[in-house]
């Protein structure tokens, strides 16, 4: 095999079957044109050097992009990736946690549950991210290769050419007024945390003691029966908080109506919290026995917790209205 043969093979193997023969023939005749009648290997090398890397030459012939996703689709691709990735991750996490608690018998130690959820959660996030990334990239790589339109302008998210009318779909959001995704997901996270604490208080909230096998749950702090008496209104509050978060996500900025909904949720939440917390039967008798030595601490703690709750709710309400007012 001469260098010329190998070079031609290196070019043509990257080309579609039907054009191989013709290109090989033309390439060979061109190379021979460039060489003198009795050529040395050095001369061959010089000529092949002029023709350049076979891969580059082949890609010139192939008329197909040497990239997965080109400028026409890149912006849409990145936008969609940023949008889908967090949603997919959150949904998979929620479904994972829900499945876990549906099969949860209550016999496992809390710390193990937490570790289990965290470990599996991290694994889920990696898995889902990889899946989303792979499939989205695949779809766009195929689009890039099948779209033979002459128009090479980058596309907008609606997969059409940009026009000034597209600007009408976007509201101008001043930075101080904006609701970040972080804020929304933080809110949802907080709701799911306290909801979990509420429904699993008898396993989660209480006094822990360090032991050889890790943290050991000693006494539950709250009387679960008393606590669960309030479940219908608590479910309403959970629904309200989730609805508020989604509403914020949709609007993307503080408005007067969001501020009002926010106020309603905060006020109802605070009132219900105060009612539940000031119920004299709420604290578990065992817990009261456990802290009997610090009796005065109890009233002080209850009062403190309630005031903190009221103050933070008031700040949240005020902040909502303040941001809604910014123009």
């Amino acid at each position: 095999m001469s260098l010329i043969d190998i070079y031609i093979q290196e070019v043509t193997r990257r080309l579609p079957e039907k054009s191989r023969e013709d290109i090989a023939l033309e390439l060979r005749s061109t190379i021979e044109d460039m060489l003198s009648d009795d050529y040395s290997e050095e001369e061959v090398k010089a000529v092949l050097e002029k023709l350049g890397n076979p891969a580059t030459l082949a890609s010139g012939y192939r008329d197909q992009p040497m990239h997965l996703i080109g400028p026409r689709y890149f912006d849409v691709y990145v936008t969609l990736l940023k949008m889908i990735l967090p949603i997919a991750v959150v949904i998979s996490l929620i479904s994972m946690i829900a499945t876990y608690f549906m099969n949860y018998g209550g016999e496992e130690a809390v710390i193990n549950v937490a570790l289990h959820i965290m470990g599996e959660g991290i694994w889920r996030i990696i898995e889902v991210s990889m899946q989303v990334f792979f499939w989205l990239t695949l779809v766009f790589a195929i689009l890039e290769r099948t779209d033979k339109g002459k128009d090479q302008n980058p596309l907008t998210t609606s997969l059409s050419k940009w026009t000034p009318d597209d600007l009408k779909d976007i509201s101008y959001i001043p930075k101080k007024k904006a609701i970040t995704k972080f804020e929304v997901f933080g809110g949802l996270m907080w709701t799911s945390i306290w909801a979990t604490l509420y429904f699993y208080a008898e396993h989660l909230v209480g006094v822990y003691r360090g032991s050889e096998t890790g943290l050991e749950f000693v006494v539950p702090a709250l009387n679960h029966e008393v606590l669960l008496r309030y479940w219908p209104i608590v479910v309403v509050i959970i629904g309200g908080e989730i609805a508020l978060s989604l509403y914020k996500l949709m609007k993307g900025q503080w408005t007067k109506s969001i501020a009002i909904v926010n106020m309603v949720v905060q006020v109802v939440g605070t009132v219900v919290f105060i009612v539940i917390f000031s119920n004299p039967d709420l604290l578990h008798p065992k817990f009261l026995a456990y802290i009997a030595d610090f009796k005065q601490l109890e009233t002080w703690a209850v009062g403190g917790v309630i005031s903190i709750f009221i103050i933070s709710a008031a700040i949240a309400v005020f902040d909502g209205f303040r941001k809604a007012k910014i123009s």
Binding site: E26, S29, T30, D33, L51, N53, G60, Y61
Partner: peptide
């Protein structure tokens, strides 16, 4: 033909990357 074209262009002082020229000819044909 390919190489004669290269020579013609070079005579006029137009230096052309040959790995671009040959694919270009096929594209023009297409």
């Amino acid at each position: 033909y390919g190489y004669s074209l290269v020579q013609l262009l070079e005579e006029s002082g137009v230096n052309i990357d040959q790995s671009t020229l040959y694919p270009l000819l096929r594209r023009l044909e297409k």
